[in-house]
C-alpha cells in the first residue's frame, strides 16, 4: 500500500511565526495549468494590521544592526535558498509555467539578486551619503537612513524573482517589510518565508501576507504607521494604483508608483529600489577648540 504523503499547510508569516489568517479564510491556489496545488491563507485587514505591528516592533533593532551584519544575513538568505533550490525550482515551475530550465534560471537570478543586495548593505551609505563643505566652521555629514515600515505589493507574475527584487532592497537598507505576495502565485512567497525564518532574519523584519493586493493594499496604503508603499504589484491597474497613492498621502508615505506593465526582473536593478526607501539625515556640528 502506497504511503499517504503529508501535505503542507501554507500559512502567513508574521513576526517570525506562521499563523493562519486571523479571518480563517483561505483560497485555492492552482498551478499554471489550472490544477489544484494547495490552499493558501487569505490575508485580511487584521492580518495586515498585525503584520505592521510586528514590523514596527522589529524596525528599531533591524535598523540598528551594523550594515555588515545585515549584509551577512542577506547572504545567509541566499545560502539557505541555494540549499533548497529544488523546492524553489519546483514552485516556480509549477506556479509560473514555462520550462524547468527557465525555472532554474529564475531561481539562480533570485539567489544572485540576494547576493547582490547583500553586498550593498555596507556600501549604499558611502555611495549616497556626502560630506558637505558648508561655508563655515562646521562638520556636516549627510547619511542615508531607512525610512521605516514598508508595505510592498509584490509583483503578480514574477512570484519569486520579483518578490526577492522588492524585498531585498528594503531590508538591506535597514527597512522592515510587510509584503503582499502575488495573488495567484503565492506559494514561492511562503517557501521564501520559511527560508527567512531559518536565515537569522529577526522575526518581524519581513512579514509575508498571501492574498489579494486589491483588498489588503488599501488598508496598508491608509495605515498611519506605514512609512512607504511599493505599488509594483498593482502594475496595470491604474485606477487602483491611483487610489492607493491617494490613501498613502494621509501620512505622506513615500510611494513607489506602479509601472504600466510588470518590469523585466532579470535586468540589474540600479540604486532606485533602495534610494526611494532612504531618508537623508544631515548632521551639523561646530568645529572648534
Amino acid at each position: 500500500m502506497a504511503r499517504v504523503d503529508v501535505r503542507k499547510t501554507y500559512k502567513l508569516y508574521i513576526g517570525g511565526a506562521f499563523p493562519r489568517s486571523e479571518s480563517g479564510h483561505s483560497y485555492e491556489v492552482t498551478d499554471s495549468k489550472g490544477a489544484f496545488m494547495a490552499n493558501a491563507a487569505l490575508a485580511s485587514r487584521k492580518d495586515a494590521r498585525d503584520a505592521v505591528v510586528a514590523a514596527r516592533k522589529a524596525f528599531g533593532g533591524w535598523a540598528a544592526r551594523t550594515a555588515y551584519n545585515r549584509a551577512q544575513i542577506l547572504y545567509r538568505i541566499a545560502e539557505v535558498m541555494e540549499d533548497r533550490r529544488p523546492q524553489f525550482v519546483d514552485a516556480v515551475y509549477r506556479c509560473e509555467g514555462g520550462s524547468t530550465a527557465r525555472a532554474n534560471k529564475v531561481v539562480d537570478e533570485a539567489i544572485d539578486r540576494l547576493v547582490w543586495y547583500a553586498g550593498w548593505a555596507d556600501k549604499i551609505g558611502q555611495v549616497t551619503g556626502s560630506a558637505n563643505p558648508v561655508a563655515g566652521p562646521f562638520f556636516n555629514l549627510s547619511t542615508p537612513e531607512p525610512t521605516g515600515v514598508v508595505a510592498v505589493l509584490a509583483p503578480q507574475a514574477s512570484s519569486l524573482l520579483g518578490l526577492v527584487s522588492v524585498i531585498a532592497p528594503a531590508i538591506t537598507t535597514g527597512n522592515v517589510v510587510v509584503v503582499v505576495s502575488s495573488h495567484q502565485r503565492p506559494l514561492p512567497a511562503v517557501t521564501f518565508a520559511e527560508v527567512l525564518a531559518t536565515s537569522d532574519v529577526p522575526g518581524g523584519v519581513v512579514n509575508v501576507l498571501t492574498g489579494d493586493a486589491a483588498t489588503v493594499g488599501p488598508w496598508l496604503a491608509a495605515h498611519m504607521d506605514v512609512n512607504a508603499i511599493d505599488l509594483t504589484g498593482v502594475a496595470g491597474d491604474a485606477e487602483l494604483a491611483r487610489n492607493l497613492e491617494i490613501a498613502a498621502a494621509d501620512n505622506l508615505k513615500r510611494v513607489r508608483r506602479a509601472p504600466a506593465a510588470e518590469t523585466d526582473w532579470s535586468t540589474e536593478p540600479g540604486l532606485e529600489p533602495m534610494t526611494w526607501l532612504l531618508e537623508t539625515k544631515t548632521v551639523w556640528h561646530p568645529i572648534g577648540i
Binding site: G136, P137, F138, P286, I287, G288, I289
Partner: peptide
C-alpha cells in the same frame, strides 16, 4: 572643570 563648556563657534 565642572563649569559649563564654551563652544567656540557659538561664542564667536
Amino acid at each position: 572643570h565642572g563649569l559649563p563648556g564654551v563652544d567656540q563657534v557659538g561664542a564667536e
